[in-house]
């Protein structure tokens, strides 16, 4: 395979990784919660998209906003009902709680959806550009992943609610003095994290087969993307996602696909030593 093709594959994968990780990163950055549910949220989004398509013939692009909205509600409720009770506790407490909730969600999905790999097959064919072969469905997935990530960025930077999220992240009690109801912003932020996970899941279901067994893999990827790019910022997730996609694509070809994941984690470890804030992370902003 030539260089351009490997790079293109990496960029497509990386855009999906960015979309997959950005919600996880946001929740970690704003709430200081390591959301162990994130991988299962992605799977849930993917399964809902698949079953709507398979059973009712609903196009994935129509399901995408529905799945995203549904997961926002799920995330908001989980935060408001459970996680807000312990959100100021040390990070290990919230990690244990989300881990427990993930066990429940993961097993429910395995029971009701089974662990059979599922994929939406749209059969859109592929195009060839400068000698690079690109399936249309992957291009579509990449474009939507970048669009959603960009939308999140614009929302955080330019909207009233986005400013409130950043303010809560920076200084909780000063934010309260602005009249911001901190617990509500936490619930909204967690909801947005779940929304992005669900949307990423819908996109993944169009591109790769998904199964509940991938839940941990997706969570691991979100972790690596955050550490490589820098925690809690959209540009960090974008850079981290693209970096991981390209790293996996090249190491998969050069060393074999079984080593792609290992190389990703190795790069993460290396960055933790030489640049713990991530590639575009800012000190004190993590």
């Amino acid at each position: 395979m030539d260089f351009a093709q490997i790079l293109a594959n990496g960029v497509v994968l990386g855009a999906l990784y960015a979309c997959l990780a950005v919600g996880f990163s946001l929740v970690w950055g704003v709430l200081n919660v390591i959301n162990m549910l994130h991988g299962s949220f992605i799977i849930l989004g993917g399964y809902l998209t698949y079953f709507a398509w398979q059973m009712f013939g609903i196009h994935p692009l129509i399901m995408l906003p529905i799945v995203a909205a549904f997961l926002f509600v799920v995330g908001y409720a989980l935060q408001a009902i459970f996680i807000n009770k312990v959100v100021t506790a040390p990070v290990l407490v919230t990690l244990t709680l989300t881990f427990g909730l993930d066990m429940i969600l993961y097993n429910l999905m395995t029971v009701y959806f089974s662990a059979t790999p599922r994929q939406v097959t749209l059969g859109l064919g592929s195009i060839q550009l400068f000698g690079v072969y690109l399936p249309v469905v992957r291009l579509l997935g990449m474009a939507l992943a970048l669009l959603l990530t960009g939308l999140l960025y614009v929302t955080l930077r330019g909207s009233r609610i986005g400013r409130a999220i950043v303010a809560v992240r920076m200084d909780r009690s000063a934010a309260a003095l602005m009249g911001i109801r901190v617990n509500r912003i936490y619930a909204i932020t967690f909801g947005i994290g779940a929304l992005m996970a669900g949307a990423a899941g819908a996109l993944f279901a169009m591109v790769f087969p998904i199964t509940t067994n991938l839940s941990g893999v997706f969570l691991g990827k979100a972790f690596v993307v955050c550490v490589i790019g820098g925690l809690g910022s959209v540009p960090g997730a974008l850079v981290g996602g693209l970096a991981l996609g390209i790293i996996e694509s090249f190491s998969g070809v050069l060393l074999g696909p079984q080593h792609a994941l290992t190389v990703g984690f190795l790069v993460m470890l290396l960055l933790l030593i030489v640049r713990p804030t991530g590639l575009v992370g800012v000190k004190g902003y993590e």
Binding site: R160, V166, S173, A175, L177, I180, G284, Y285
Partner: peptide, 26 residues
């Protein structure tokens, strides 16, 4: 009642204007 806290407590990473707009959050 608005409260200007000790040590200013401005929001890092946000512009002056965004900080002012947060004052008008409600």
């Amino acid at each position: 009642i608005a409260h200007v806290p000790e040590g200013r407590r401005l929001f890092k990473g946000l512009s002056v204007k965004d900080n002012l707009l947060l004052g008008a959050y409600l």
